[in-house]
């Protein structure tokens, strides 16, 4: 006891009673968190193998040899998902920005444009993505278009782009609305036109604020790309289905899930980090308790 007291006063700045109390609280919290995590993990490790059919599930979902065999094919197929993602994303952002600007126009002459833009976002967001993919992906090539314009891959991507631009447009619109009117007043009072004000003053601030929700939508898009497989293209989900049928084993689906996670988790973490930073920047000092 005496020794402890001596050491504390000798090597560290002396803590006040409150700081000492808070340090103990912190230690207590981390101990409880560690203990409860340990209990849960042990329970999972002990009880799941004791389920009556665990052997079968293990064999049909977590077959290591099957994993090794399927992995290269699935990675190859995943490349198509990446490509669809890469070419739809810029198209979505451009279309969404134009729609958001149309909805934010103020001139009375542009009323029809505002109405169309509002209708577009309503219709695109009001129907499940998968239905748009079926309708556009089968419907448009059904018009009898020539190659390459009859490709389900093309029209599936278009359907994805259409729906997502509806969602992303709403994100941009919220960002534009969040910029205070006094910023517009300042810009207009300097003689900038309404378009110049939007371009140089409103949009740069709006876009900065909506980066986290935009990334959120990109994470969703990254997964929904797999829906295009339902109208034909052999991407990762489709390839996993083929492997599953061929080997009568569900392991390829688990591998596909892991491949998706390897992309979506970093993206999600980044989004969270940016949210957090934006919150800290804009929401003031945190209350104590």
């Amino acid at each position: 006891m005496a020794l402890g007291l001596h050491r504390r006063s000798g090597h560290q700045p002396r803590l006040t009673t409150r700081q000492e109390h808070e340090r103990q609280q912190r230690r207590r919290s981390s101990f409880i968190a560690a203990a409860s995590t340990f209990v849960v993990l042990v329970a999972v490790a002990v009880f799941i193998p004791r389920m009556p059919r665990w052997d079968r599930v293990k064999k049909s979902f977590f077959d290591v040899n099957q994993m090794r065999d399927s992995f290269p094919r699935l990675i190859d197929a995943f490349w198509l998902d990446v490509k669809i993602f890469v070419w739809t994303t810029p198209a979505i952002f451009i279309a969404a920005l134009l729609i958001a600007l149309a909805r934010n126009s103020r001139s009375p002459a542009l009323f029809p444009v505002r109405m169309l833009a509002a209708a577009y976002t309503d219709v695109m967001r009001g129907v499940p993505v998968i239905l748009w993919i079926y309708l556009v992906g089968f419907g448009v090539p059904g018009l009898g278009l020539e190659r390459p314009f009859n490709s389900p891959l093309l029209w599936g991507s278009v359907a994805l782009g259409m729906t997502y631009s509806g969602y992303v447009a709403e994100v941009f619109r919220a960002g534009i609305d969040s910029v205070h009117e006094s910023q517009r007043a300042a810009a207009r009072s300097l003689g900038l036109s309404s378009a110049q004000t939007m371009r140089h003053v409103v949009l740069p601030q709006a876009i900065r604020r909506v980066v986290p929700p935009l990334l959120n939508d990109m994470v969703s898009l990254q997964k929904d790309v797999a829906l295009v497989s339902l109208i034909g293209p052999i991407e990762i989900l489709r390839q996993a289905g083929i492997d599953k049928a061929k080997f009568a084993n569900f392991t390829p689906f688990v591998v596909a899930a892991l491949i998706f996670l390897s992309v979506t988790i970093p993206l999600t973490r980044l989004t969270d980090y940016l949210w957090h930073r934006e919150r800290r920047r804009t929401s003031g000092t945190r209350v104590a308790a």
Binding site: Q183, A185, A186, A187, L190, L192, H200, P204
Partner: peptide, 26 residues
């Protein structure tokens, strides 16, 4: 010109750019 109670500077631009924006664009 007008100067506002709450300044209304453009927060995403440097001081210099706040001043030069309208000079170049207007």
């Amino acid at each position: 010109g007008i100067v506002f109670q709450s300044f209304n500077l453009f927060p995403h631009m440097s001081v210099a750019r706040n001043i030069t924006l309208a000079l170049t664009k207007v």
